[in-house]
Nucleic acid binder design. Sequence first.
DNA 1: TTCATTATTGATTCATCAATCAGTAATTTT
DNA 2: AAAATTACTGATTGATGAATCAATAATGAA
Lengths: 175, 175
Amino acid sequence: MDKITPKAASRKEDIISAAITVFADLGYYRATTAQVAAQANISQPYVYRFYNTKEALLLAALERSWDRILQAFSSVREKVKPEDMETAFTEAYKNVLRNFQSEILLQMQAQTIQDPEIRKAMQSGMKRIRDYVLSSFQQSGYPEPEERTTIFLAKGMLCNIALAIDMDELMPNHL
Amino acid sequence: MDKITPKAASRKEDIISAAITVFADLGYYRATTAQVAAQANISQPYVYRFYNTKEALLLAALERSWDRILQAFSSVREKVKPEDMETAFTEAYKNVLRNFQSEILLQMQAQTIQDPEIRKAMQSGMKRIRDYVLSSFQQSGYPEPEERTTIFLAKGMLCNIALAIDMDELMPNHL
DNA sequence: TTCATTATTGATTCATCAATCAGTAATTTT
DNA sequence: AAAATTACTGATTGATGAATCAATAATGAA
């Protein structure tokens, strides 16, 4: 039956946090479940009580990282005047980069993993973000919202890279 | 003394090609030197006659991938009128993506590898490209060449991602 | 307190892989 | 054709890691 007790639920969260840190730092394939366990202060086998495979853990970690970005944008959309939408989104993303670097690095890792399950997760995450940004730009009455969305996303991706390889010169000016 | 015979030089190239394919496909850490060797039709130990470590092989592969892009741009710059520069660069990059997908995927992999040697290689590769594009845009008399270079690179990076996760909707229109 | 459920781990397994070594074939030089 | 150099491989090693199992501790209910 395996009921989900509060304690177990919080363990799951701990493990995801640990996985994000370790995977981002070492790379998914090089990182070991033992390192994730250590980071979460539990034993290696116990990880498998919550995630049946290393890949399931990666998927959970990715889900959190996509939720994070969407959450950041959606908390902005309520508060801000239409004409400030893009600037506000940019600020929101800057904060995600500052406070959740590892989640972004993890996404970058996952971009190049060819496994179908991972690929699906990345596609759907990317689509959620794009759709949200596009519809926000449309609602804000921006001209050429598609092109503007593309450029917004493109700058975001360049930003990720600048962060990952530690090259400030690469950062888009205002980001 | 280990003189470099023509045969050895061509073996080195074969191994790099094989490494690019295998690393891009499986990921650097998951890929094995035996798989690289198989792809190059040689035995696994023989790889080590040319590259002393797996990482040295990755560095060589990365160098080729950066050279490829610079080569593509520089062969364009000679042939094209200043006002067509950006469009021509875009076309040139499109061709690289078409014909050397694996090299791009490999670069994406390397973006998230934290090792100092790899990081240095990525920084210097990225810098070479950016400097070349920027100076080309400047020579072409484009207004705001920095901003234009940034957007050009940003769209390129988004393009890479669209390729990697197989999402055509993400592709910048004209690319 | 006893029983049941939930939380957790030590020890192990089986597989895999980077790197080395010690040697054999092929080719070139003399 | 012998010697020397270059090309190449089989076998091995030592380490490591995902996943499983069998068990023990802790917690809560009856």
